[in-house]
Amino acid sequence: MIALVTGGAGVVGKALCRELLARDVCVRVLVLPGDTQAGFLPEGVEVFYGDVTDADSIREAFVGVDLVYHLAAILLSTKPGAFERINAGGTRNVVNVAKAAAVKRLVYVSSISVTYPVLTEYGQSKLAGESYVKNSGLPWTIVRPTLVISSPIGTGGIEFNMFVAYVKRFPVYFMPGGGKCLKRPVKSTDLVKGIALAGLSECAVGNTYALAGETVLSMADMAKAVLKQAGKRHCMIPLPWWISKKLAVLKSWIGGRPVTAEQALAGFLYDAAPDIENAKSDLGYTPGSPLEF
Rank of each mutant, 00 (worst) to 15 (best):
G156E: 07
K104D: 12
F40H: 08
Y69M: 04
A204G: 10
P152G: 10
I142A: 03
K251N: 13
E214P: 04
A102H: 06
S110V: 12
R257Y: 10
S151Y: 02
Y209C: 11
L76M: 15
V45G: 01
E159H: 07
E159R: 06
K232S: 13
N135T: 12
C26L: 14
K14I: 10
F160E: 08
A264S: 15
G284M: 06
C181T: 15
P176A: 05
A198G: 06
I158D: 11
I2G: 01
P139T: 12
P258V: 15
G81Y: 04
V27C: 09
A212F: 04
F40E: 14
V107L: 02
I2E: 13
L291Q: 01
L200V: 09
T78R: 12
P152L: 11
A266E: 03
V63R: 09
V164D: 03
P290D: 02
L239T: 13
V143S: 08
V216P: 04
G267R: 00
N135V: 00
Y108E: 07
I276Q: 01
Q263M: 14
F160L: 09
V205A: 08
F174D: 02
N278R: 13
I254Y: 02
P33Y: 00
T91C: 00
F160T: 09
P33I: 05
R23T: 14
A210V: 06
V11E: 13
D275W: 03
G156D: 05
P176C: 07
H70V: 10
E121H: 09
I237D: 02
M219V: 14
V52A: 04
A101S: 13
G44M: 03
F40I: 08
A279G: 12
V259Y: 14
P185D: 07
R233C: 13
S188Q: 08
L227R: 13
P238K: 08
M175S: 14
L211V: 12
D271A: 00
A55N: 11
V65A: 08
N278D: 14
G50N: 07
G156R: 02
T141W: 09
V12C: 02
V52H: 05
W241N: 09
D54P: 07
K183E: 05
P258G: 15
P42G: 09
A273K: 02
V97T: 14
S252N: 10
D24R: 15
G267H: 00
A73E: 07
G123T: 08
L41Y: 04
V118N: 06
E292H: 03
P287A: 04
G8Y: 01
K99E: 03
D54M: 06
V95K: 04
L138Q: 11
A264E: 01
V216G: 02
V205H: 01
G206Q: 01
M236H: 08
R105E: 12
G255C: 06
K193S: 08
K126D: 11
R18S: 15
N96R: 10
G231C: 14
M222V: 06
L191G: 02
S57V: 14
V63N: 03
T36N: 01
K168G: 07
I86K: 00
P139E: 11
L20I: 15
D221M: 09
A38P: 00
A279V: 12
D56M: 12
Y285I: 07
V5E: 07
P238C: 11
V118E: 15
A230W: 05
Y132H: 15
I243L: 15
T115M: 05
K246L: 15
Y69C: 04
Y166F: 07
E277N: 09
F268M: 04
Y166M: 04
E292T: 06
L227F: 09
